[in-house]
Design a protein around this nucleic acid. Structure first.
Lengths: 196, 196, 196, 196
DNA sequence: AATGAATGAGCCTTCATTCAT
DNA sequence: TATGAATGAAGGCTCATTCAT
């Protein structure tokens, strides 16, 4: 039955994902999830015993899938650094503007209310991974002459913080696609040699 | 009596401010506020009839006081653009790192759950005001030869998004003073003519 | 100031009358009355200390005014018994169908919840008075040859119970003017000699 | 489980019936019912979510049972119209004088506060059904020579309004068995040929 | 007399959690 | 495993009543 169990667990996580995306973290009740899953109250408790447990499980599933497949794939090809950075930014843009199934708000609510040690904070991991990827791409770009900067790490961090700022702004003050494009472009332009 | 009433209203707002700072928006109950104020349930309802009403009142009081007095004062003196930008950033840094009485998290929770038209969204107003100030300072700095950039508006926006990113990161993944310094410095350096 | 006091008392009773007419007895709160009168909470308590006290006061004022003036006046003239009974029924009909300011429902609620000794029950007094009036009119009518029945008292009671039935029906199942006319006419016809 | 559920639903309705009989409609709180049933607050809400819902359910159960079984049974026998009318009146009398478990007052309170379209107003239905029964009985009685009247419908209505009047009077001004007997007798006598 | 702020009791409603089946 | 009835705690809201001014 472990097979069937795993199946059901996955099913619950999917439905719960939708609930967290819609209501954030704090407003979600076990009842919400039960109803979304259309299972019994007791049934849910068999798998998860609190919204926190549920949320953390949803989150790790989510991150697992997340693995920036597009980027990874591209890295295996012979794409230029510029192409790959563009690809990365395209993914980020999609995430920033995503309305459906976004866990961003739920993450803010959860991680701002719970002091998670950085080492095990998935948000932190994602952020650091992003910086790492961007830094690498920039360095590659410098080597190939596509990019120009004397602080690739600083630039990568700057980019990631801007992305964070855009994400939160998208949820709180509302921004449109043009705004995102403009901001990302601003940064990219800082990277490109300006002599031309 | 209106005098005393106003007094008490203010008192409630102060206490509520503390509660929102501590628990964010969604977790705050009227009971929390009642207990923080040490008044009766009915007494609170005399002044505010929901946590939303309370929060919005707290917020407008907060913004009112906020008025970036330091900056304003400096503007009336003969401070250089560089000094003034440094001052602005110091204020922002304080805000980013503030643990006590920060409404940042509560704002995220409230404004991500409620679609407020941009025109009346105080978060938006604050952001735009920030961009405006920074842009002006940069332009002044360009005129005085302190700064160098061909897109003051873009640079101002970039700075403000980084600040947003730092704010949210401070609450969710935790960042220390050095990180803030490093990020702000990175941007400042981009502004300073590098020929020397 | 006793003059002014009496004035205000009267004012409160008028407003309260409207409130009881609209909401019945049980649903009325002191707050309702305070708001209807636009006076202070404490102010109302200076005059009445419960809705019950208020209601009973409203009721006695109401009954006082009620005194079937029209009938009384007619009795002093040389109206025929038939005319006077018709007049009486017209008044009753008005009462049965009245939507505004009717205390009927409030009376039902109050007197069905409180066992008032018949001797001091104003509803009972009114009922008995009605029977008495009708009986007298019928007897007069018999003497003048207008009416015919061998049980004037029984007929009067029957009429009054029908009126009670119509009153309560008007409030609970809804009846229209035609229905009232038809019912009252039915009784009248039983009184009139049928030989003609 | 549905079996047990139905059982409990019935149990709650019985207890609630008692509560409404005792306190009318408006004064009944969910807490009253919870206590009468000796179940938990939440438990009650599982079955009914307001006193209104409860009351309407109580009412329809009540009417269902009500079916004037005695009359129906008699109709299938060879009882005379007079016997059957007497039987009907005996039932009504019982109802008029009933102290325990009577929903009359609750009905007054509920239906005078809520405008229910006549077509779906159970009080109206009951009234009309009563008129219909009485009219039929009278007509049968006329055919068999037991009764005499030239307006069976009018007489039936008159009877039913008197009964309504007696019901409400029983609750508000208090009447005893003799009074009921006397009033019903008065009407009956009007039906019986008087020549003998 | 009159005001209206303040209190606290009371009822409403929703859910997390348990448990018998 | 799975169900869903049941419980009771928690928080919301409204008002009767009091009292300092």
């Amino acid at each position: 039955m472990s097979e069937k169990s795993a199946q059901k667990r996955k099913y619950i996580l999917e439905k719960a994902h939708g609930v967290f995306a819609e209501k954030g973290f704090k407003d979600v009740t076990m009842k919400d999830v039960v109803e979304a899953c259309d299972i019994s109250r007791g049934g849910l408790y068999l798998y998860f015993s609190s919204t926190e447990e549920l949320f953390l499980a949803v989150l790790s599933e989510d991150i697992e899938e997340d693995d920036d497949e597009a980027i990874t794939k591209a890295l295996n090809n012979d794409a230029t650094a510029g192409d790959m950075l563009a690809l990365f930014l395209k993914e980020q843009k999609k995430e920033i503007l995503r309305k459906k199934n976004s866990l961003v708000v739920a993450c803010y609510e959860y991680f701002s209310a719970n002091d998670i040690p950085p080492a095990s904070n998935p948000l932190r991991k994602q952020f650091d991974a992003g910086v790492q990827i961007v830094q690498t791409l920039i360095e590659n770009g410098i080597n190939s002459g596509e990019f120009q900067t004397n602080d690739p790490y600083g630039c990568a961090r700057n980019l990631m913080y801007v992305i964070e700022g855009l994400k939160v702004s998208a949820k709180t003050i509302g921004i449109n696609e043009d705004t995102v494009d403009r901001e990302l472009l601003y940064i990219l332009e800082g990277l490109v040699p300006e002599d031309n």
